[in-house]
C-alpha cells in the first residue's frame, strides 16, 4: 500500500458516500445515470469474486464488501426507492455498445485465459467506460447539480491517483500491469473535460454545463 493508492481508495469511498448522501438527503436521484450505476455494480461484482477465495487484508475485504454493497443500494435507490425521481428520458446511453466490445476485448486480451482472470479483465475494461452514460446524461440535461459534480470529481480523481500508484509501484516494487494502466489512462482521460469544468467553474461557485 502507498499514499497514492490509499488516497485514491478514500476518494473512491468519498464519491460513493457523496452519492448516497445526495440521494438520501434530497430523496431524489435526479441527474444520476442509473445505467452508469448498473455498470459499476457489474464492475464490482465481476472484480471481487475472489472475495471468498483469497484473503489479502481486513482493509481489502472490508472495502470490497462496502463497494459491492453500496453499488447495489445505489441501483436499488434509482430503480426502486426513488424511482419517481429517476430521469430515464435523459439516461439513454446504449450500454450494450459498451458491454459487448468490452466483453469481447476481455476474452481476447488478458493476462491468463481463466474464468476469474477474464472476469477481472472485463471488470477493468468496463470500469474505464462505465462513467460514459453519466457524462452523456449531464451533456443531455445540459448541467449537473454541484453535489453531482463533487461526486464525479472524487470518482475521477480515484483512478487518476491509481495512475500515480502504478508509477510508484513500478519504480519501488517493480510491479506493472499493462491492462490496468491502459484502462486507467482511458478512464482518467474521459474525465478531463469534466475536470477542467469542475476546476474552472464549480470551485468558483458556478454550475457545470456540458458541452462546455
Amino acid at each position: 500500500m502507498n499514499i497514492f493508492r490509499l488516497v485514491g481508495d478514500m476518494s473512491h469511498l468519498l464519491a460513493i458516500i457523496i452519492l448516497l448522501m445526495k440521494m438520501w438527503k434530497s430523496r431524489s436521484v435526479a441527474g444520476i445515470s442509473g445505467k452508469s450505476q448498473i455498470l459499476f455494480a457489474i464492475v464490482f461484482t465481476t472484480r471481487y469474486l475472489d472475495l471468498f477465495t483469497s484473503f489479502v487484508s481486513i482493509y481489502n475485504t472490508s472495502m470490497k464488501v462496502f463497494f459491492i454493497g453500496t453499488s447495489y443500494v445505489t441501483v436499488y435507490f434509482i430503480y426502486q426507492h426513488f424511482k419517481p425521481t429517476y430521469d430515464s428520458n435523459h439516461d439513454t446511453f446504449r450500454v450494450e455498445f459498451l458491454i459487448v466490445p468490452v466483453g469481447g476485448l476481455a476474452f481476447l486480451v488478458n493476462h491468463e485465459f481463466s474464468l476469474l482472470e477474464i472476469l477481472w479483465t472485463f471488470s477493468i475494461y468496463l470500469e474505464s467506460v462505465a462513467i460514459l452514460p453519466q457524462l452523456f446524461m449531464v451533456s443531455k440535461t445540459g448541467e449537473a447539480e454541484s453535489i453531482t459534480s463533487h461526486y464525479l470529481f472524487a470518482l475521477g480523481s480515484y483512478r487518476a491517483l491509481y495512475l500515480l500508484n502504478w508509477i510508484y509501484r513500478y519504480y519501488f516494487e517493480g510491479f506493472f500491469d499493462l491492462i490496468a494502466v491502459v484502462a486507467g489512462c482511458v478512464q482518467t482521460i474521459l474525465y478531463c473535460d469534466f475536470f477542467y469544468l469542475y476546476i474552472t467553474k464549480v470551485l468558483k461557485g458556478k454550475k457545470i454545463s456540458l458541452p462546455a
Binding site: D9, D50, V56, S114, Y162, F176, D177
Partner: peptide, 10 residues
C-alpha cells in the same frame, strides 16, 4: 510481468 499474481488492489 503479467499480473495474474493475487490481486491486492481494489
Amino acid at each position: 510481468s503479467s499480473s495474474s499474481e493475487p490481486k491486492d488492489e481494489l
